Simulated scan of single mutants.
Amino acid sequence: MNSIAALSYYKVERNISGLEQTIHKQDRWIYLYQEKVVTAHREFLIQEVFDISYRSMGGDGGMLYLHTLQGVYSYTITEDPQSFLEAYKALVHE
């Protein structure tokens, strides 16, 4: 099954052991399909997604918010999500 749109996001994990803190940045993807939205660890049926919104955080990137039946999930992104948002809006208004 081919995705309609894809958008990269990242997750930052901080680990503290003893006196040392390590930071790991994991690059991940969110995919929009005809029937669902899929992230690295979650999958939502398209009818369970109420909206997808974006808020710029100044400089590069911002937060993408996935408003779902299970709650609101946030994803940190660095690229412009406009084409992803337009693809979602076109899909739900078919």
Rank of each mutant, 00 (worst) to 15 (best):
Q82T: 14
M57V: 13
H24W: 03
A5Y: 02
L85H: 06
I77G: 00
R28K: 09
T78S: 06
N2L: 08
Q21C: 13
R42T: 11
Y75L: 11
A40M: 07
D27E: 14
Q26G: 06
H41F: 01
D27V: 15
W29E: 00
E20K: 15
M57L: 13
M1F: 07
E43Q: 10
V92R: 05
K25D: 10
G59S: 12
L69R: 15
V72D: 05
Y88M: 09
S53R: 12
E20C: 15
Q26W: 12
D60W: 14
E13Y: 01
H41E: 10
S53N: 14
E79V: 07
A5K: 07
A90D: 00
V37M: 07
V37A: 00
D27P: 08
L64F: 03
L66M: 08
A90T: 10
E86R: 06
N15S: 12
L85Y: 01
A87L: 07
S17I: 12
V38F: 01
T76I: 02
S8G: 15
L32P: 11
D27Y: 07
V12G: 06
Y54G: 06
I16R: 05
E94L: 03
E20F: 09
L32N: 07
I77R: 00
E79T: 11
L69G: 11
R55E: 11
V12I: 13
H41P: 06
F84G: 07
G61K: 10
S3L: 07
I30H: 04
F44W: 03
A6S: 14
D51L: 09
F44E: 03
E86Y: 05
Q47I: 08
L69S: 14
Q47D: 06
G61V: 09
